[in-house]
């Protein structure tokens, strides 16, 4: 099996504090790969490094065989690796339909044409509705994104990300702060959209991780502590210790419970 995304010796220092230290991560093609670890383990930093929102102090990042260490975030998105954000990232004042359409527009409609009327974008509506149906949001097409519940904003965000037709999706805590029903809905959704693509996600909820993830990397104090399937990782005494030693109730790996 080939590796879609690989890092070698990835380090990030913030003014002498080493947030990420020598992380070598290998994400296999077609996997749902989870990045877990106690609070402050550096998960989000790794995430920001991978998507180029932060520049690593040292180390390399390779996407599908190409070194992308020096790329810009927007260029990366165009090469098929698209991220979501920890805090739900929609365009609040746009409707749900427009949110998805903005993503479609970048690929297949004019974006600099300030002289054309807005209705030239209407031909993207059919495809946008298809994507909304995929995430069960077709009934909310004309709702302002700001007026949606948290879970539904997540769905819009995933539909928007799918509009980019990414081969690699990076999801930053997709179920964070959600109620029971929303968690299940989004988990099913992630499983559904994982067909034909690779997903790397940061996740606290062990039920989600154990349910849908093929492979798990455990991060602790900026380094990878263990890697493997859920069964392997959850049996690793070092992992258990890392989680017990912290006050992080969310990450109770032994119990496999909910947050």
């Amino acid at each position: 099996m080939t590796h879609v995304l690989e890092t070698a010796g990835l380090c990030k220092e913030f003014g002498g504090f080493r947030a990420v230290s020598d992380v070598s991560l290998k994400v296999r093609e077609g996997d749902i790969h989870a990045l877990i670890g106690p609070n402050g383990a550096g998960k989000t930093t790794v995430f920001n490094l991978l998507t180029k929102f932060l520049q690593p102090t040292s180390g390399t990042i390779v996407l599908e065989g190409r070194d992308i260490t020096g790329e810009k975030p927007a260029a990366l998105a165009r090469q098929g690796m698209v991220r979501s954000f920890q805090i739900s990232a929609t365009f609040p004042d746009l409707t749900v339909l427009e949110n998805v359409r903005v993503a479609l527009q970048r690929r297949s409609a004019p974006t600099y044409a300030f002289w054309l009327p807005g209705r030239v974008l209407d031909r993207l509506n059919a495809r946008a509705m298809e994507l909304l149906e995929l995430v069960d949001m077709q009934d909310f097409a004309q709702t302002r994104a700001a007026d949606l519940s948290y879970g539904r904003k997540r769905s819009v965000e995933i539909a928007t990300t799918l509009a980019m037709e990414p081969r690699v999706m990076l999801l930053d805590e997709p179920t964070q702060g959600m109620g029971h029903e929303d968690v299940e809905r989004v988990t099913r959704l992630i499983k559904r959209v994982s067909a034909g693509r690779t997903i790397l996600m940061v996740e606290h909820n062990m039920k989600v991780v154990s349910g849908i993830c093929d492979r798990i990397s455990v991060l602790q104090r900026g380094s990878i502590l263990a890697e493997g399937s859920y069964a392997e990782v959850s049996a690793d005494p070092r992992v258990l210790e890392a989680y017990m030693g912290s006050d992080d109730a969310d990450g109770d790996i032994g119990a496999g419970g909910e947050p």
């Binding site: 927007a74 260029a75 698209v82 954000f85 990232a89 929609t90 004042d93 974006t111 600099y112 807005g118």
Partner: peptide
Amino acid sequence: RIVTSPFGQVLTAIRENEPRALSLGYDVAR
């Protein structure tokens, strides 16, 4: 016309959520 054009739609997206626009592949600066 400018604010309702396809370009205006991108501008609105940038104003509303710049990191998201960036992650969708828009060269925000341009």
